[in-house]
Simulated scan of single mutants.
Amino acid sequence: MKKIKIGIVGLGRLGRKHAENLAFKIPNAELTVVCSILKTEVEEVQKAWGIKYGYTNYEDMLKNEELDAVFIASSSTEHCKQIEQALDAGYHVFSEKPLGVTIEEVRVAKSIVDKHTDKIFMLGFMRRYDPSYAYAKKKIEEGAIGEPFLVRCYGLDPVSAIQGAIAFAEKSGGLFLDMAIHDIDLARWYLGEEAKNIYAIGGCYAFPEFGKFNDADNGAALIKFNNNKMGLFYAGRTSAHGYHIETEIVGTKGSLRIGTVPQKNLVSIFNENGAVQECVSGFIERFDKAYLAEVQEFVNCIIENRQPKVVVDDGVKSTEIAYACKESFEGDKLVRIEY
Rank of each mutant, 00 (worst) to 15 (best):
I6R: 10
I6T: 07
G7M: 09
G7W: 07
G7S: 14
G12W: 00
G12Y: 01
R13F: 03
R16A: 08
A23R: 14
K25P: 02
T32I: 04
V33W: 07
S36F: 06
I37S: 10
L38R: 11
K39D: 03
E41R: 15
E41Y: 14
E43V: 14
E43H: 13
E44D: 15
E44V: 00
V45H: 10
V45S: 08
Q46I: 15
K52F: 07
T56P: 14
L67Y: 11
L67K: 13
D68Q: 05
S75Y: 03
S76C: 08
E78Q: 15
C80M: 08
C80R: 15
K81C: 06
E84V: 03
Q85N: 13
A86E: 01
L87N: 03
D88F: 09
A89C: 05
Y91W: 02
Y91L: 02
K97L: 08
P98H: 12
P98Q: 02
P98E: 01
V101Q: 13
E105N: 10
K110N: 03
K110I: 06
S111K: 10
S111M: 01
F121N: 04
M126I: 14
R127Y: 10
R128D: 02
D130K: 14
S132H: 14
A134H: 11
A136N: 08
E141R: 15
E142P: 04
G143S: 12
G143C: 10
P148S: 09
R152L: 10
C153A: 11
Y154F: 13
P158K: 03
S160D: 08
A161Y: 03
G164S: 01
F168Q: 02
G174C: 02
F176A: 01
M179S: 04
A180T: 04
A180C: 11
A180R: 01
I181E: 13
D183E: 12
I184N: 09
I184W: 06
L186I: 01
A187C: 12
A187Y: 09
R188I: 07
W189S: 05
Y190N: 09
L191W: 09
L191I: 07
E193C: 11
E194Y: 15
E194W: 13
I201P: 03
I201Q: 12
Y205K: 07
A206S: 10
E209H: 08
D217M: 02
G219K: 12
A221Y: 03
K224C: 09
K224P: 00
N228C: 02
K229H: 04
L232C: 06
Y234M: 12
S239F: 06
H244S: 09
T247P: 05
T247V: 15
E248A: 08
T252D: 06
K253G: 00
K253V: 00
G259A: 02
V261K: 11
N265S: 13
L266S: 14
S268L: 14
I269T: 07
I269L: 06
F270V: 12
N273G: 09
N273Q: 11
Q277H: 01
C279I: 00
S281V: 01
R286Q: 04
L292D: 14
A293V: 07
Q296N: 09
E297G: 00
F298S: 07
N300G: 09
I302T: 05
R306Q: 12
P308Q: 06
K309H: 05
V310D: 09
D313K: 00
V316Q: 03
T319F: 02
E320R: 03
C325F: 07
K326A: 08
K326T: 14
E327L: 14
F329S: 01
E330G: 11
G331K: 14
D332W: 10
R336M: 08
E338H: 11
Y339E: 15
Y339T: 13
